[in-house]
């Protein structure tokens, strides 16, 4: 088993290229803004954005917390609804034939068109954002879990049957574990789009949150504040993605080809 030091070194080696590229890009950005003397309201340099984050930490923190809550509640809602729906779809052919087309159709309606309606129906509070987050992020979960439950090897199913397994046992002990990698892949995609969903919801109408903050800051040419919000939002998405990635690593450690 590799030592803690070596594991850390491997982790660093994995992250170093991406971190280097990001840092390089920021430096080029900083230099370009200074050399060409770009006005701050048009494009602030990264140092100015960093300064903005530190000086308005209290304000940004308050709105970040609002967005984080919407994202997390919506994400959990999407996961539970998505999994239940996927199990139903995988279990019943009739349900799949009748319901699945509408699950797909629900994604062809632009979320930006639904958002104002939700605002009318449930008001500008947290609920409308949670619904939008759930609407946008349940889809990758449903599709992946349905595929995953169907991915069970047919010979394995035959083996289970010769051992006297019931349908329910095959589901519990074969299909669910087979679907786990698919579920976690879906969860990773859902984590990223969940953040987008929250911002869209806040943009259309809200009393707080980073999306709302960006919307009121942009017309006032507080461009560095908009950028600060963008930085925080992308950090949020990345954190959620990495969290699910870590969960995946633990859950799939004995699955073949799980060295992701």
């Amino acid at each position: 088993m590799p030592g803690r030091g070596r594991a850390l070194a491997e982790l660093a080696a994995g992250w170093l290229p991406a971190a280097g590229l990001g840092l390089g890009a920021l430096m080029v950005w900083e230099a370009a803004v200074r050399i060409f003397d770009v006005p701050r309201w048009l494009l602030p340099p990264p140092s100015r954005i960093l300064w903005e984050i530190f000086t308005t930490a209290e304000l940004l923190g308050r709105h970040t917390w609002i967005t984080v809550q919407e994202v997390l509640i919506g994400f959990c809602l999407a996961t539970s609804v998505g999994v239940v729906l996927a199990v139903l779809l995988a279990y019943s052919r009739a349900l799949e034939r009748s319901l699945y087309p509408y699950v797909i159709a629900s994604q062809t309606v632009p979320i930006i068109a639904i958002a104002p309606l939700l605002l009318v129906w449930v008001g500008p509070g947290q609920a409308s954002k949670v619904i939008i987050v759930a609407l946008i992020s349940f889809f990758p979960i449903v599709v992946n879990v349905v595929d995953g439950l169907r991915s069970a090897d047919s010979e394995m199913i035959a083996m289970f049957r010769t051992l006297g397994a019931s349908k329910r046992q095959i589901f519990q002990k074969l299909q669910v574990p087979s679907a786990l990698p698919y579920f976690l892949s879906g969860l990773k995609v859902a984590a990223v789009v969940a953040v987008i969903g929250a911002v869209i919801g806040e943009w259309v109408g809200a009393r707080g949150g980073l999306g709302w903050l960006m919307r009121i800051s942009a017309p006032q040419f507080q461009t560095s504040r908009v950028f600060a919000a963008i930085f925080i939002l992308s950090a949020l998405g990345i954190c959620l993605f990495l969290l699910v990635g870590a969960l995946e690593k633990v859950a799939l450690r004995h699955y073949p080809n799980s060295d992701r």
Binding site: E155, T162, A165
Partner: peptide, 8 residues
């Protein structure tokens, strides 16, 4: 089914 052991 379930009473005959089957190895693949």
């Amino acid at each position: 089914l379930g009473l005959v052991a089957h190895m693949h």
